[in-house]
């Protein structure tokens, strides 16, 4: 596979973007940062499918498309199915030798938001993983249904207010914990799963390259700070991703072959989750004295997860 150099940013920047501007994502949206980092980490042909979500509706505004690669959208939930079908068709046609360029390397990628990955498209994703197709699924995790007005999804963390888990006098926002999607996907026997963040561009590009190179179904969960629904200033998107990774709300790690866990980024001085929460409007209510225990609980959970990840990295089981 033809991978492009990611030794440093200067080398990385010599790539020719295949994701065009004038899509209608919000200013400062992290989705397009992630998509650009993926598409620049290889110069192979790409076949991409998108679930319904911010990325899909914003990059295919009739009569325009922002994709310079093959791109398909079918339904809310079935990007994984669509792209694996394309992959099988490619395999068969390659065998028969009736492709235009039989030797051109092609990679298959599916994009989904957290709603279509954790909830609505979960069954389709799980099926595609089980069938062991050679594709990469990338979840753009902004922790809510941002496209339809910020409803809660099963990726929304404890304490966040959304339009369907509203914080007020009787509620502190969402009460249920976030699904551990990375562990679920590793449990499918996937050869490569990872959680990555756009602010750590190098580990992200490396992870994408590994996933594209690896044969079999790979899954990558990416943190995508959403300025509209997390309620922060668009200019702080990269800073918010920094806070997310440094507070270990989103630890950066990979799991190879279901058991080899490697932590890809270790903050020198982890910051308290309080700082991460204070930067966003969706956690504003937690800073009232009566909801103090929620912040402490989230901090305890984050510490526990970090401890678990470190032990798993040592144990290699």
């Amino acid at each position: 596979m033809a991978i492009t150099s990611i030794k440093n940013l200067k080398e990385f920047s010599t790539n020719n973007d295949r994701f065009e501007g004038a899509h209608t994502l919000c200013p400062g949206c992290a989705h397009s940062m992630i998509v650009r980092e993926l598409m620049n980490c290889t110069d192979d042909n790409l076949v991409i499918a998108s679930n319904t979500g911010c990325l899909e509706v914003s990059t295919a505004v009739y009569p325009f498309t922002s994709w310079d690669t093959s791109w398909i959208h079918i339904g809310f939930e079935n990007a994984a199915t669509a792209v694996t079908a394309a992959q099988v068709m490619h395999k068969v046609r390659k065998k028969k030798g009736n492709l235009k360029d039989n030797d051109a390397p092609v990679k298959f990628v599916a994009f989904g938001g957290d709603g279509s990955t954790f909830d609505i498209g979960f069954q389709w994703l799980s099926g595609a993983m089980e069938r062991q197709h050679d594709f990469t699924y990338i979840c753009l995790d902004n922790e809510n249904y941002a496209n339809t007005g910020g409803q809660r999804s099963s990726a929304t963390p404890v304490g966040a207010t959304t339009s369907t888990s509203v914080a007020g006098t009787h509620s502190y926002g969402k009460k249920e914990k976030k699904k551990d999607i990375v562990a679920i996907m590793a449990a499918h026997g996937s050869p490569y799963v990872a959680q990555l963040a756009p602010n750590k561009w190098k580990s992200m590009a490396k992870g994408f390259q590994k996933a594209l190179e690896t044969e079999g179904p790979c899954f990558i969960n990416t943190v995508s700070p959403c300025c509209t629904e997390w309620k922060f200033d668009p200019k702080d998107t990269v800073g918010l991703a920094d806070l997310a990774t440094d507070s270990l709300m989103f630890p950066i790690y990979e799991i190879v072959n279901g058991h080899e866990l490697n932590i890809l980024y270790r903050p020198k001085n982890p910051i308290p989750v309080e700082e991460y929460m204070a930067a966003q409007g969706r956690y504003k209510h937690l800073f009232k004295p009566e909801y103090r225990h929620i912040i402490d609980q989230v901090q305890a959970d984050v510490d526990k997860t970090w401890e678990m990840l470190q032990r798993r990295e040592e144990a290699r089981i």
Partner: peptide
């Protein structure tokens, strides 16, 4: 260049040349 969400930073041969004002949304990233 790497963090521009709108593909609006024009870089050629490892040099930053300027801004694509047709596609920039002014997000300040």
């Amino acid at each position: 260049w790497v963090w521009c969400p709108d593909t609006s930073i024009i870089s050629r041969d490892k040099q930053m040349l300027g801004i694509d004002y047709d596609h920039c949304k002014g997000c300040e990233v």
